[in-house]
Design a protein around this nucleic acid. Structure first.
Length: 438
RNA sequence: GUGGGCGUAGCUCAGUUGGUUAGAGCGCCAGGUUGUGGCCCUGGAGGUCGUGGGUUCGAAGCCCAUCGCUCACCCCA
């Protein structure tokens, strides 16, 4: 009988047990940093009203115009939905919907962890159709230290995980007024060199001139290099904001590369934009991207509320950590493997495992039927058992099993009823991962 | 979306200009040790050569399509 195998959808990945340990290490690090910074966790639905993204991210952006998964809705609702391609808009929506902003003059500090995002793209290493992000959103503060706080949150996670070979790129896109002034100079400049620009950049000159700046096409490089830069068109306030941010980051040892060519593909950004890239990643090298979005909350129907945040890709972070061989998982705590010989021993093994587990001791036993001692021992060894507790016919008779230390090979008889207390002296409660820093 | 590379056992890979029963290492299972793991020795299981067509006396190798991975672009986390 030949049955067609159904595959996982293109651009999605299964996370298997070994890999899942690495995921948990990253997720733990994010939660710890969130705790450390006093941010509260938020989780939002995987799909939202399509209008949310059209309004927030921008209808002309690639993300909205060609990368969204649209959902067909049942019933008579004419509402269209989309799997979320990013998290800032949903988080802002949730904050407004749950009145998190009203009645408090303080700022709202939110973070999210391991949240799936969906974009219909051609898959590549580090570019999936479903990928996961952690990130933050600070709603309320206009202060440049909020920008510094945001970047430093991201860096704290990376440092905690021992990531190296990463670089922070920073730029300011200015307030809408500054940007308009700059565009008035930039667009004529690009038109002036129109013939020499790459096809893509010619198109972008009209649709999204900012994006010409981070073109990688060789023929664009010189034109881009001599193009008017936004930093020269910033208002006094924009400039002061940027300067304060730069020195704040410097004061905590976060090195930034000011990159006037850094633009980002989402419409809502104002002033600060930044990106963290890794040299261990190939062409999809952005680990984290974010910036300030002072007008978005209002655009989504809230009160005028300045805000800043970032999103970071977990799959990419894991690739970078693996390339640099950074994330080492520590050896596990004690593990007891019960070897049961014969059908009479199995119930006793199950019962004993229950007692050990109730006492917080990791315990396993063979789930296959009637396997030889050799097979069970081999599996115990493979699973990394520190101890094996053997229950056979004679052990059942005299009420005591054989406890073997797998490292030394020594074995002693331990009565069924005293096994738990005996093992309690052996177990440890080490954390299940450690991180190497150099 | 555009252009290039790849697809042989669970994994990493061999497979000579198309030529009989498609191989290795690791892993897995069993035996050597009638109730003792790791090391060693012996044996075994496991492959519609990604899938579907085509060319040919004959295809893992050639041609076409398709699926998947991958690299660069586009875009981005």
């Amino acid at each position: 009988m030949k049955v067609e195998r159904i595959q996982a959808p293109r651009g999605t990945k299964d996370v298997l047990p070994e890999e899942a340990k690495r995921w948990r290490a990253v997720e733990q690090a994010v939660d710890e940093v969130g705790e450390l910074f006093g941010f509260g966790e938020i989780r939002t639905p995987a799909f939202e009203s399509l209008r949310l993204f059209k309004r927030a991210v921008g209808e002309e952006t690639d993300i909205v115009s060609k990368e969204m998964y649209l959902l067909q809705s049942k019933g008579d609702s004419s509402e269209e939905f989309a799997l979320r391609p990013e998290l800032t808009a949903p988080v802002v929506r949730a904050a407004l919907e749950n009145s998190l902003l009203s009645g408090q003059s303080d700022c709202l500090r939110l973070y999210y962890n391991s949240q799936p995002n969906f974009r219909y793209e051609k898959p590549q290493l580090g570019r999936l159709r479903q990928h996961h992000q952690f990130g933050t959103e600070l709603l309320g503060p206009a202060d440049p230290f909020a920008d510094a706080e945001t970047i430093s949150f991201a860096i704290a996670v990376f440092r905690k995980l021992g990531l190296k070979n990463f670089r922070v790129r920073l730029n300011s896109l200015g307030s809408p007024e500054s940007r308009a002034a700059w565009k008035e100079v930039l667009v004529p400049y690009l038109r002036q060199h129109f013939d020499k620009l790459s096809k893509d950049s010619q198109r972008r000159t009209e649709t999204n001139p900012l994006r010409v700046l981070d073109s990688k096409a060789p023929e664009d490089q010189e034109i881009v290099r001599n193009a008017p830069i936004i930093l020269d068109y910033l208002s006094a306030d924009d400039k002061a904001h940027f300067t304060t941010l730069k020195s704040a980051l410097e004061s905590v040892g976060i090195e930034c590369n000011i990159d006037p060519l850094l633009v980002r593909g989402i419409d809502y950004y104002t002033r600060t934009v930044f990106e963290v890239t890794s040299s261990d990643l190939g062409s999809q090298d952005a680990l984290c991207g974010g910036g300030r979005y002072d007008n978005l909350v209002e655009q989504l129907g809230g009160p005028p509320t300045p805000a800043v945040g970032f999103g970071a890709g977990i799959e990419r972070l894991l690739i970078a950590l693996e390339k640099a061989e950074m994330l080492r998982l520590a050896e596990e705590q004690a593990l007891i493997y019960i070897v049961a010989l014969g059908p009479e021993a199995k119930p006793k093994a199950f019962e004993t495992a229950g007692l050990l587990r109730a006492a917080g001791l990791r315990t396993m036993y063979d789930l296959l039927s009637d396997r030889s001692m050799k097979a069970q021992m081999r599996e115990a060894n493979r699973e990394g058992a520190t101890h094996v507790y053997i229950i056979g016919e004679s052990e059942l008779q005299d009420g005591a099993g054989m406890l073997k230390n797998m490292q030394s090979g020594e074995q002693i008889k331990v009565a069924f009823e005293s096994l738990v207390s005996h093992m309690m002296g052996v177990g440890s409660s080490e954390p299940n991962y450690i991180i190497h820093h150099s």
